[in-house]
Write a protein that binds this DNA or RNA. Structure first.
Length: 227
DNA sequence: AATGGAGGCAACCGCACAGCG
DNA sequence: ACGCTGTGCGGTTGCCTCCAT
């Protein structure tokens, strides 16, 4: 971009009620998407990302505001144990809650309560996500992108040539061995495609979260589909 | 009443990925 | 094949409020 356009100074910081109103009205009229142009078209001096975040986390319909219920807290703890810092996935199981809210709640309330081993695992700075990406996954409620023809695998993984030494696979393996629920263990490494596994994960997550399979949501002996 | 530390939370940042031209 | 754009995600920052002193 040689001739860089002089961008007007974008506004930062807390959103004012009038800005919320403008954004809300705009999205209700024109729909979500094209966030980069929203600020300009709506007359907001905000970045597209800022608009998107504000809408997603606070202005969207069906957002549940206010404190977490005991059930929600419990569910977050259980889901975090299962899924780690995959806030969007966790938030996807909590109707009306957003990833940001869940993440903040975890960091401020729950992280400190949990015993050491269960606390948030920080990403190793020498081994960041570029190198060992977690598989992208779709929150169930998701208004997300019409996902990935490859179901969340990276290109590398998709071409089938990847070694399976990804740390998240190790995580999944240790996670599966950590709990005594009747999930079959894979003795050999496998490609974890959580889009495909999601139906099973859902049952499993529910099973693990609610501690019961009375309703047979999680069926003993259930095998994830072979890829 | 003043102030400083801690906690909570909203928002920003940087990166990855998908889609498109 | 490549670059650009739009979007999603997780980590981090910084402001605000509360409370103890």
């Amino acid at each position: 971009m040689g001739t860089k356009e002089v961008m007007p100074q974008l506004k930062k910081g807390l959103w004012k009620p009038e800005e919320d109103l403008i954004l809300k009205k705009y999205v209700e009229t024109y729909g979500e998407g094209k966030w980069a142009t929203v600020s300009h078209r709506a007359g907001l001096m905000r970045g597209g990302k800022s608009c998107r975040l504000r809408w997603k986390n606070y202005l969207r319909p069906n957002i549940k505001l206010g404190g977490m219920s005991e059930d929600e807290k419990d569910l977050i703890i259980r889901l975090h144990k299962l899924l780690g810092n995959r806030w969007s996935l966790i938030a996807g199981r909590l109707p009306g809650r957003t990833d940001n809210e869940v993440k903040n709640y975890w960091n401020t309330h729950l992280n400190k309560k949990c015993p050491r081993g269960e606390r948030t695992r920080r990403i190793d700075p020498n081994n960041n996500r570029n190198k060992t990406p977690l598989p992208r996954s779709e929150p169930i409620h998701s208004e997300n992108k019409k996902n990935s023809s490859n179901g969340g695998l990276t290109k590398e993984e998709d071409n089938g040539s990847t070694t399976v030494s990804h740390s998240w696979i190790e995580d999944m393996k240790s996670f599966f061995s950590d709990i005594k629920s009747p999930l079959p263990m894979y003795s050999e490494p496998f490609f974890y495609n959580d889009e495909i596994l999601m139906p099973m994960m859902d049952n499993y997550v529910l099973f693990e979260a609610f501690g019961t399979n009375e309703d047979q949501t999680f069926q003993e002996g259930m095998l994830p589909p072979r890829l």
